[in-house]
Nucleic acid binder design. Structure first.
Length: 759
RNA sequence: GGCCGCUUAGCUCAGUUGGUAGAGCGUCCGGUUUACAUCCGGCAGGUCAGGGGUCCGAGUCCCUUAGCGGCCACCA
C-alpha cells in the first residue's frame, strides 16, 4: 500500500468496478421496503457546478439504504430546460448573424435538438467523477418519447376534467425573449423614474407610464375620497395629446387616496391592477403595445378617427407609431409639455419595475390569449397531503412557506411562445377558425403574417403554411382538438410549448414509466426528494400536485431542502466576484471523497454551505487517515498477527467495541433524521480521536497482538461501512486491499451489509 | 407591506427534550528516524448581538430592540 491515498489512481477504477457488478441497479429480490430517489435533472447541456455537487446527500442516502439491503435505486436524467437552452442557442445564432425568425418552427426545433445533443453528456461524466451511484440504465431525458407521451396524456386528462382553459389574461411578457412568463419567473428591480402629474380635464393624475394613456378606459378614485365623490359615475371630456377623449369616473376601494392625487387612470390592457379593475367594471381591454414592445397605433390609423383628427394630432400618431415604449414616452412628454398638459414631474420617485429574470428586459404586462391551468382544485389535496403528514418537509420551516404559497395560489399560465419544448398537443380547424393569426415562411423563405383566411385568399395553401409555420395565435374562443397528431387535413397545430415546469412537474411519473411499469409499482412514491429551496414552488409543489392528481398518491414521502453552496465567507458564488469554486477542480485536487464530506460536515440545513479549499483539504487528510489505519492493519497482518474471535478482551478493547456500537446507533439515528452533518462529524471524531489517537496509540506497546488486531479489524471495518456513504472511494479502496489480504469476506464494500447496532 | 431565518472563540460554524460552553481552520509552544508531517501532544482565546422575563437553573423557552439574510406580494 502506498504511503498516502492517491485518489487519482483509484476513483475511476472503483467506479468501473461498481458498475461492472451492476451495484447501481436495485436488487429487486430483496424483501425490505424499496427505497428510491430521483435526481433533480440538470440541464442536458450544462456542466457541473457546486450546486450539483450537493446531490451527494442523495448518494449518501442511497448507499446507506443499499447497504441495509433495501431494493434501492437512484434515477438520473436531464432536462431540456426550455427557454434557457433556446436562449443559449439564440446567442449562438446571433454570432452567425441570424435569429430565430429566419427559421420555421420545425427546423428551429431540430437545430436546437442537435445543438443540445452536441453539448450533452458532459454532466453525466462529471456526476460519475463524484462517485454518484446512479442507475444509468434508467436515465431519462425530458424530451424522450415516453415522457412526452405522458405529458400529452396528462394534458388531455386535464382538458377533459375542465382544469385547462384558454383566456385573455394579463401576463408577464418579455419582448426580448418573445414569451410569456409566470409570476414566479419575473423579478422586481427598484428604479428611479419620473412620476408625471398629468392634467386630465378637471383632475390631475400621477403616472410613470404616460404612454399607456392613449388607451385609458376610465378614471378611478376611492369611494370615500371626498375630493372626487361628486364625480363618480360621471363622464367627462378630457383634452389629450391626440385631442378630446371621453372618460368615466368609477369608484373602487382599492384606490389609495394617499398616492399621487388620489385619482388614477385605468389601462386594463397594460397593467395587472388595472386589468383586475377592468374585469370588475366591464371596461374594454384595448391594447396599444405589441409583443415586440412597440407602440401599435393601427387601431387608430385604420379607423374613421383619422378623418376627424386635427393634422397636428395625426402627425403625432404617425410619429409614435411602431416606436418603442421608451422612445414614445419621451416624445409624448415633450408634446404634453408643449400643450401645457403636465402639471409637474417628480424626478425622485422610486418604484419597483418588473423585469425578466432571464434577460433582464422590462416585462410588458400584455393581454394575450394563453393556456391556463386551474390551480385551486390541484392545490387543495396537495395542502391536505402535507397537513396529514403524508409528506414531511426538512427543515420544517419550509412547510409554512409551502402553505402560504399554496393557499394563495393563482391559475398557472402554462403556454410559452418558444419552440424548444414540448408542444401543446392541440390542433385548430382552419375552417372553423378562419381568424387564427399565423406567421410563416413561404416557399420563397419570405415571412408572411395574417389571419388564415387572409393568407389562404392570397393563394397560399395550407401545406405551405404548416411547413413554414413560425407561430400561430388562436382567438381564445377558438375550437380545438387535443391530439398529438393532426386530426385531419385542414388543421394547423398550436405552436406554443408547455412551461418547462409542466413537464418536469411530472418527473416522478415519467422517470418511473407511469402508469403500468414494474418500476412505477415498485418505487412510487419515491422516498425523498432533495433539492435546493429555490425551486420549492417551481418544481416541488408542482410535482406534489401532479402526483396527487394522477395517482392519488404523493410522489415522495419527504422533501429535503438543502441550502446554497457559497464561498468560505458565505457569499454567493458568482463570476463577477471571482469566487466560483469548480467542484471538478476540487475533486481533482483533493479527491471526490474530500469534496463530498466537506459539503456535508459542519453544515446546518438552514444555513448556506460554505466551501473552501482549506476545508476540503482537511477532509482529504481524513481520507488519508483512514487509508493509513488500513495500512497499519495490513502491516500488522504481515507481521504475523492473526484474526480470531476467541480473545480475552481488555478494557480498552471492550470500550472501543462499545464505542463502535454507539457510533453505529448514532449514525443510524442521524441519517434517519437527515442530520448529515452530525453523522459525518461523529464518524470523523470517532475514527480520528477514539480509534486512532487513543486506542491505536495505547495498543502499540501491548504484547497480545492478535487481540489488538482482531479488535481493531472489527472496529475499523465497521467504521469503513459507516463512512462509505460519505467517502465511497477511499473506503472501497481500503476494502479491496482487505479483500486481497483475506481480511474481509464481502467482495465489495458498496454492497456489504450495514453494521447492526445491538440494542 | 406580510412571513421566515440568522447574530456563539481571530475565521467558518456545531450545540434538537433548559443541567458546569464545543469542532475544524488559524495563532503560539513543544514533539516524532516505520500507519499517517496529508502526523502527534499542548497553550491561549467566548459577559453565547443588546435589554427584559419565566425557571432552582437559559446559548437553549417567552417578549423586545438593533444589524444581516431569505421568501412572498407589490398600488398607478
Amino acid at each position: 500500500m502506498d504511503k498516502a491515498f492517491l485518489h487519482q489512481e483509484y476513483e475511476q477504477k472503483l467506479y468501473a468496478l461498481w458498475d461492472k457488478h451492476h451495484t447501481f441497479q436495485p436488487n429487486m429480490k430483496n424483501k425490505k421496503p424499496p427505497f428510491s430517489i430521483l435526481l433533480p435533472p440538470p440541464n442536458a447541456n450544462a456542466s457541473l457546478h457546486a450546486g450539483h455537487a450537493m446531490f451527494v446527500i442523495e448518494d449518501i442516502l442511497i448507499r446507506w439504504k443499499r447497504m441495509q439491503g433495501h431494493p434501492t435505486v437512484w434515477i438520473p436524467g436531464t432536462d431540456h430546460a426550455g427557454y434557457e437552452s433556446q436562449y443559449v442557442y439564440e446567442k449562438h445564432l446571433a454570432k452567425q448573424g441570424k435569429s430565430r425568425f429566419d427559421f420555421d418552427r420545425e427546423t428551429l426545433y431540430n437545430d436546437i435538438y442537435s445543438f443540445v445533443q452536441q453539448n450533452s453528456g458532459l454532466i453525466e461524466e462529471q456526476l460519475k467523477l463524484l462517485g454518484f451511484s446512479l442507475d444509468w440504465s434508467r436515465k431519462t431525458f425530458m424530451l424522450d418519447d415516453h415522457v412526452v407521451s405522458t405529458v400529452y396524456d396528462t394534458f388531455a386528462k386535464m382538458v377533459k376534467d375542465g382544469l385547462v382553459y384558454r383566456d385573455h389574461y394579463i401576463v408577464n411578457f418579455c419582448p426580448k425573449c418573445g414569451t410569456t412568463f409566470a409570476d414566479l419567473e419575473v423579478k422586481h428591480e427598484e428604479r428611479k423614474d419620473p412620476l408625471y402629474y398629468i392634467k386630465y380635464g378637471p383632475f390631475v393624475v400621477a403616472t410613470v407610464r404616460p404612454e399607456t394613456k392613449f388607451r385609458d378606459a376610465a378614471l378611478a378614485a376611492n369611494p370615500k375620497d371626498k375630493r372626487y365623490k361628486d364625480w363618480i359615475g360621471k363622464t367627462i371630456e378630457v383634452q389629450g395629446v391626440l385631442g378630446m377623449v371621453k372618460m368615466t369616473v368609477i369608484a373602487d376601494e382599492e384606490v389609495d387616496p394617499e398616492f399621487g392625487t388620489g385619482i388614477m387612470k385605468v389601462t386594463p390592457a397594460h397593467d395587472a391592477h388595472d386589468f383586475a379593475l377592468g374585469r370588475r367594471y366591464n371596461l374594454p381591454v384595448t391594447p396599444i403595445i405589441d409583443t415586440h414592445g412597440k407602440m401599435d397605433f393601427s387601431w387608430f390609423l385604420q379607423s374613421e378617427k383619422t378623418k376627424s383628427t386635427e393634422p397636428k394630432h395625426l402627425e403625432r400618431v404617425q410619429k409614435y407609431h411602431n416606436k418603442s415604449v421608451r422612445d414614445v414616452r419621451a416624445l409624448m412628454v415633450e408634446d404634453m409639455k408643449a400643450d401645457g398638459l403636465i402639471e409637474k414631474v417628480d424626478e425622485n420617485y422610486t418604484h419597483n419595475v418588473t423585469v425578466c429574470y432571464k434577460s433582464g428586459h422590462d416585462i410588458e404586462p400584455l393581454v394575450l390569449p394563453n393556456w391556463f391551468v386551474r390551480m385551486k382544485p390541484l392545490a387543495k389535496p396537495a395542502i391536505e397531503a402535507v397537513k396529514k403528514k403524508r409528506i414531511q418537509f426538512v427543515p420544517k420551516r419550509f412547510e409554512k412557506q409551502y402553505y402560504q404559497w399554496m393557499e394563495h395560489i393563482l391559475d398557472w399560465p402554462i403556454s410559452r411562445q418558444i419552440v424548444w419544448g414540448i408542444r401543446i398537443p392541440v390542433w385548430y380547424s382552419v375552417q372553423e377558425n378562419p381568424n387564427i393569426q399565423v406567421t410563416f415562411l413561404d416557399s420563397e423563405h419570405i415571412r408572411v403574417t395574417g389571419t388564415v383566411q387572409e393568407v389562404l385568399n392570397q393563394g397560399y395553401v395550407l401545406e405551405e403554411i404548416q411547413k413554414g409555420l413560425q407561430s400561430l395565435r388562436a382567438p381564445v374562443d377558438a375550437t380545438y382538438v387535443v391530439s398529438d397528431k393532426a386530426p385531419g387535413p385542414d388543421y394547423l397545430p398550436e405552436t406554443d410549448t408547455f412551461d418547462t415546469w409542466f413537464s418536469s412537474g411530472q418527473w416522478p411519473l415519467t422517470t418511473l414509466h407511469y402508469p403500468e411499469s414494474k418500476d412505477f409499482k415498485m418505487f412510487y412514491p419515491t422516498a425523498v426528494l432533495d433539492t435546493m429551496w429555490d425551486i420549492l414552488f417551481f418544481w416541488v409543489a408542482r410535482m406534489i400536485m401532479f402526483g396527487l392528481y394522477l395517482t392519488k398518491d404523493v410522489p415522495f414521502k419527504a422533501v429535503y431542502l438543502h441550502s446554497m453552496v457559497t464561498d468560505e465567507k458565505g457569499q454567493k458564488m458568482s463570476k463577477s466576484k471571482g469566487n466560483v469554486i469548480n467542484p471538478i477542480d476540487i475533486a481533482h485536487e483533493f479527491g471526490a471523497d474530500a469534496l463530498r464530506i466537506a459539503l456535508v460536515a459542519g453544515c446546518a440545513p438552514e444555513n448556506p454551505i460554505a466551501l473552501s479549499k482549506e476545508k476540503v483539504k482537511g477532509y482529504r487528510n481524513f481520507g488519508n487517515k483512514l487509508w493509513n489505519i488500513g495500512r497499519f492493519i495490513v502491516m500488522m497482518k504481515e507481521q504475523g498477527a492473526e484474526n480470531s474471535t476467541d480473545q480475552v478482551l481488555t478494557k480498552d478493547d471492550q470500550s472501543l467495541l462499545t464505542g463502535v456500537q454507539l457510533l453505529t446507533k448514532q449514525t443510524q439515528k442521524y441519517l434517519d433524521e437527515y442530520r448529515f452533518s452530525d453523522a459525518a462529524l461523529g464518524l470523523y471524531d470517532f475514527v480520528w480521536n477514539t480509534l486512532a489517537n487513543t486506542y491505536l496509540e495505547h495498543t502499540k506497546s501491548r504484547e497480545d497482538k492478535d487481540c489488538v488486531f482482531s479488535t481493531l479489524l472489527l472496529a475499523f471495518t465497521s467504521c469503513l461501512k459507516l463512512i462509505h456513504p460519505f467517502m465511497p472511494f477511499v473506503t472501497e479502496a481500503i476494502w479491496q486491499e482487505f479483500v486481497k489480504e483475506k481480511l474481509v469476506d464481502d467482495p465489495l464494500l458498496i454492497t456489504a451489509a450495514w453494521p447492526r447496532a445491538e440494542h
